[in-house]
Design a protein around this nucleic acid. Sequence first.
DNA 1: AGTTGCCCCTGCGCGC
DNA 2: TGCGCGCAGGGGCAAC
Length: 289
Amino acid sequence: MPELPEVETVRTGLAPFVENERIVHVEVFHARAIRRHVLGASDFSAQLRGRTMLLPGRRGKYMWVPLDDGRALIAHLGMSGQFKVSASSAADDRHLRVRITLASGQRIEFIDQRTFGGLFIDEMDASGLPTSIAHIARDPFDPEYDVDETARRLRKRQQQVKRALLDQTLVSGIGNIYADEALWRAQLHFGRASERLTNAQAVKVLSEARTVMEAALVQGGTSFDEMYVNVNGESGYFERSLEVYGREGQPCSRCGRAIRRVAFANRSSYFCTRCQPPPRRAAGSAHSP
DNA sequence: AGTTGCCCCTGCGCGC
DNA sequence: TGCGCGCAGGGGCAAC
């Protein structure tokens, strides 16, 4: 569920609780919550014990907490991951996967119903990025993100524009919701061939992705509860502001035509049939959609 | 090499 | 009321 704005809200929310805090104890309640750690959960816990955490970072939907040994604790929330800061007296959540107890006495809990998310430890490269996420492209909030360069790379893709927007090696942070919102704002159908977009269209849809995520970030930030480091699973705190996602049958705010939902790559795509007309021929297929 | 499809999970709401 | 099915906002990786 969480896309870039939600992950960034978690990162900023978690920061004051972890920065300069020492880990005294780590409990793993579900093996799947620990990823890419061949030595297993007990080794994972042993490696974290005694480490002091630094200011959390983020790229796209990945976030990490640098450790005082030069490595980092990486987290991906998957579809349902949450972080929660709790007191020692709090009852265990049903989907509690990992609990990190700090010297302050507070506990950082990783809770994940669907277990698509997880934690792991990794080395950092010279630029301060965990080596295992080197393949993740810069996101639109990265100071070195270049929208023109990203638009050029987008226009070389031999795939539908929405598939490209969701590809985290092209630009990171965009998920199914914000892809649909960006396409609606740019008035592009999700099935448009990336290589047939004009440069202006490519720049537009990428710029709109940034704009809509920034708006979500502002709202997410305002609803942040310091003791319950978001993202609350069903939340939808930004839902009111969505123009197409989840609005099947409701009128498009721009033209009044009913929003449509269609299946797309094991997910859904929402779009306005008037503002976002389908291409004569969808990219990557010989038939009309 | 670039692109696509499959799969990992649990829970909830809906229709029968 | 009960049950089966579709669906959920992600990403890694095998296969083409």
